[in-house]
Amino acid sequence: MWKTRLIALFIMVIGIFPNQSTGQLVLYALGSTLLFALLLTIQKWSTPALLLVKLEHFFKQEASNLYAGLVRDREKAIEVFHSGDKPRAYEMLREIGALVHTDQLRVEQILLLQSFILRKDMDLMLEPLLLDHFNPDLVEYIGELSKIRRDLLKENAFRYILVHEEQILAMPGGENILVSVAGAAVRLKRYITLYPYLVLRYAHKMPKDRFLRLYRIVRNNPNSKWEKLNEEVMRIYNEKYKWDEDFQRINNEHVRKDERES
Rank of each mutant, 00 (worst) to 15 (best):
K3Q: 13
R5H: 03
R5T: 01
A8K: 08
P18L: 04
Q20G: 03
Q24F: 07
V26N: 00
V26C: 07
A29W: 03
G31R: 14
L34H: 04
A37K: 02
L38M: 03
L39Y: 08
T41R: 07
I42E: 02
I42L: 15
K44H: 12
A49R: 15
L51Q: 14
E56H: 09
F58R: 05
L66S: 12
L66G: 07
G69H: 09
I78C: 00
E79K: 08
A89G: 01
E91M: 12
R94W: 04
I96K: 09
V100A: 09
V100R: 10
D103A: 15
I110A: 00
L112N: 05
I117L: 10
L118C: 01
R119H: 14
K120I: 05
L130E: 03
H133R: 10
D137F: 15
E140R: 15
I142H: 02
G143S: 08
R149S: 13
L153K: 05
E155S: 08
N156F: 01
F158L: 10
R159V: 03
L162N: 06
L162G: 04
H164D: 01
E165L: 02
G173V: 14
N176I: 03
I177T: 12
V179A: 09
S180K: 01
A185M: 07
R190H: 03
Y191M: 05
P196G: 11
P196H: 11
R201Q: 14
H204W: 01
M206R: 02
P207N: 09
P207A: 04
P207V: 01
D209Y: 08
R210I: 02
L212Q: 15
Y215K: 07
N220I: 00
K225F: 01
K225A: 04
E227P: 02
K228A: 13
L229K: 07
E232R: 01
I236P: 09
E239H: 05
K240S: 06
W243Y: 13
Q248N: 12
N251Y: 04
E253S: 11
E259H: 13
R260I: 11
R260D: 14
S262V: 07
